[in-house]
Amino acid sequence: MINIFAALNYTKERQVNFAVFKFEGLARAWWNVIRAKWDRERTAWTWLNFVREFNEKYLPPLIQEKREDDFIKLHQGTLSVSEYEIQFTKLSKFTPELIVTEQRRMRRLIRGLNIEIQEALAAAQINTFTEVLEKAQRIEIARAQVRAFHAMRRGAPSGSQGAGRR
Rank of each mutant, 00 (worst) to 15 (best):
residue 100 V to L: 14
residue 112 G to S: 09
residue 111 R to L: 07
residue 88 F to I: 00
residue 94 F to M: 13
residue 128 T to W: 02
residue 82 S to T: 06
residue 123 A to K: 12
residue 112 G to H: 08
residue 121 L to A: 08
residue 125 Q to G: 03
residue 93 K to F: 11
residue 135 K to E: 06
residue 85 E to P: 04
residue 122 A to W: 03
residue 84 Y to L: 01
residue 99 I to P: 15
residue 118 Q to V: 00
residue 103 Q to H: 05
residue 138 R to H: 14
residue 82 S to A: 12
residue 130 T to F: 10
residue 88 F to T: 07
residue 130 T to V: 15
residue 124 A to H: 12
residue 101 T to N: 06
residue 121 L to N: 09
residue 99 I to K: 14
residue 87 Q to R: 12
residue 89 T to A: 12
residue 120 A to D: 10
residue 92 S to H: 09
residue 115 I to S: 13
residue 98 L to S: 06
residue 121 L to I: 01
residue 120 A to S: 04
residue 125 Q to P: 11
residue 124 A to I: 05
residue 129 F to H: 01
residue 133 L to W: 13
residue 99 I to H: 04
residue 102 E to H: 05
residue 89 T to F: 15
residue 137 Q to V: 09
residue 82 S to F: 10
residue 112 G to M: 10
residue 117 I to F: 06
residue 90 K to L: 14
residue 88 F to N: 03
residue 103 Q to R: 14
residue 121 L to K: 04
residue 95 T to Y: 05
residue 82 S to L: 13
residue 106 M to K: 02
residue 115 I to N: 10
residue 101 T to V: 03
residue 84 Y to T: 00
residue 100 V to F: 11
residue 102 E to W: 07
residue 139 I to T: 00
residue 122 A to P: 12
residue 98 L to A: 03
residue 133 L to S: 10
residue 111 R to V: 06
residue 120 A to P: 14
residue 84 Y to M: 02
residue 126 I to F: 03
residue 132 V to T: 09
residue 139 I to E: 01
residue 87 Q to I: 04
residue 138 R to Q: 09
residue 83 E to Y: 04
residue 122 A to I: 06
residue 104 R to M: 13
residue 124 A to E: 14
residue 99 I to D: 05
residue 94 F to A: 07
residue 98 L to H: 15
residue 99 I to N: 09
residue 95 T to R: 13
residue 94 F to D: 03
residue 92 S to N: 07
residue 102 E to I: 00
residue 123 A to L: 11
residue 136 A to Q: 05
residue 84 Y to F: 13
residue 89 T to L: 15
residue 86 I to E: 13
residue 101 T to Y: 12
residue 110 I to S: 11
residue 118 Q to H: 02
residue 113 L to C: 01
residue 89 T to Q: 10
residue 99 I to L: 09
residue 80 S to W: 01
residue 116 E to N: 12
residue 100 V to G: 07
residue 87 Q to S: 12
residue 88 F to L: 04
residue 136 A to C: 03
residue 106 M to I: 11
residue 110 I to N: 06
residue 80 S to R: 04
residue 134 E to I: 11
residue 107 R to T: 06
residue 107 R to C: 07
residue 92 S to P: 13
residue 91 L to S: 02
residue 139 I to L: 02
residue 97 E to Y: 15
residue 81 V to R: 02
residue 97 E to I: 04
residue 101 T to A: 08
residue 139 I to H: 07
residue 101 T to C: 07
residue 102 E to G: 03
residue 96 P to F: 10
residue 81 V to F: 00
residue 111 R to E: 15
residue 127 N to A: 13
residue 111 R to W: 09
residue 116 E to Q: 14
residue 91 L to K: 02
residue 84 Y to R: 01
residue 108 R to S: 04
residue 110 I to G: 08
residue 131 E to L: 00
residue 132 V to Q: 09
residue 110 I to C: 12
residue 139 I to D: 03
residue 127 N to Y: 08
residue 96 P to R: 05
residue 133 L to M: 11
residue 94 F to S: 08
residue 105 R to V: 00
residue 115 I to V: 12
residue 99 I to V: 13
residue 95 T to N: 01
residue 104 R to T: 08
residue 92 S to T: 09
residue 98 L to E: 12
residue 130 T to A: 15
residue 126 I to E: 00
residue 129 F to A: 12
residue 110 I to Q: 07
residue 112 G to Y: 11
residue 90 K to P: 05
residue 88 F to K: 00
residue 103 Q to W: 09
residue 109 L to W: 08
residue 84 Y to I: 02
